[in-house]
Design a protein around this nucleic acid. Structure first.
Lengths: 194, 194
DNA sequence: GGCTTTTCTTAACCTAAATTATTTTTTGCC
DNA sequence: GGCAAAAAATAATTTAGGTTAAGAAAAGCC
């Protein structure tokens, strides 16, 4: 189990002693995922926060027509969960699925609560993580309210530069909130114009 | 300065001793706002988290055309801030304005950091506050991606029941992401259909 | 109370994006 | 490498919602 990436991720916000690092690592459960393997489905309780060490996951909902709406992507070095379900430990609405064969480290809700008791610094770490998520989520919401699809695509490229050329276009289309057909037309237009 | 509402708000998530309550209260600065008074403008640094004890505030951006896009409302018992600017202490993009004559209590960023040191329980309190914001913000984003304007309006009514009949319709329209003209047409249609 | 300003409504017209259907291209996989 | 399945492109048609403009209603203010 390779924990260097996650320890580095944590060290961006809090400093841990070697003992604390060891304690944290002991709470992690590694898991391998095949392409298209589901980590979570609608109606299930999200019992883990998941950190991606290799590959890429995505979270999405299905609406009444069965259309997929992508909430987030999690490439290497990102966290992912159905946060409503995770925080409340009630059944959620999100699907979380591996886009590619992936390696992840999982921290259970119980372990996380324990961690807050044992090493209060982690309360700070996860608070900062969530603060950053909230800020970018608010910005994305405002973008969706105020910007045309072209600009939202440009913002997507900023946010996930490593994914622009490796993700199916229909998933990018879903993330920015347009149909694959419209996305295709839009990309052609953007090429023509520059 | 009436602090009963804010202390009650806090007691939903953490228990404070009378001494801790007194310390917390000593950090709060009361402020009165007239209708249309600005608490924050684009380009300014957001130095305070603001708790509304009376009245109602809203946060919004202005786009290139000068069109307003409402991010959030804060009636009594709610918190409001430009979180990007508040967390980073860099110039932000939001306007925060009083919708009506209002009374607020403000906690400066410095005081909040100090509070984390003095009474670590507050780290938990604000973490939970932000967790809840993030969850509802993600849900609103997914609603914007997947639901027609009518459904988004119904969700608005759920979220802010106290505001449905007291807010200018153009602000509600902006919050759900449509023009006032379309909103007016939509409301007429909804009445016809039920 | 009257005057100004803002908000709300209505209606005609317009456009970004959705839908449906078909074909072509790419990808995953044994 | 070949085949099935998924993804992408194209095009015709439709629609949700935007724009423009103008009048009616309501709210704020001395």
């Amino acid at each position: 189990m390779d924990t260097s990436l996650i320890l580095q991720n944590i060290s961006k916000h809090i400093q841990l002693t070697p003992e604390e690092e060891a304690h944290f690592v002991s709470l992690l459960k590694p898991r391998s995922l095949k392409r298209k393997e589901m980590l979570l489905q609608e109606g299930e309780v999200c019992r883990y926060s998941t950190f991606v060490t290799q590959g890429c996951l995505r979270s999405y909902t299905l609406d009444d027509n069965g259309t997929e709406h992508v909430l987030s992507f999690a490439p290497e070095d990102w966290w992912i969960a159905d946060l409503y379900s995770y925080f409340s430990q009630r059944p959620g609405t999100l699907y979380i699925e591996a886009n590619q064969p992936s390696e992840v480290l999982q921290l259970s809700k119980d372990s996380q609560e324990q961690l807050y008791q044992d090493i209060p610094k982690f309360e700070r770490f996860f608070r900062i993580l969530i603060e950053n998520s909230l800020v970018s989520n608010q910005q994305r919401l405002l973008d969706n309210l105020s910007l045309p699809a072209q600009e939202r695509y440009r913002n997507f490229c900023q946010r996930y530069p490593s994914l622009v050329n490796s993700l199916p276009r229909k998933q990018i289309a879903s993330y920015i909130g347009v149909t694959p057909e419209f996305f295709s037309k839009m990309m052609k237009k953007m090429l023509r114009e520059q």
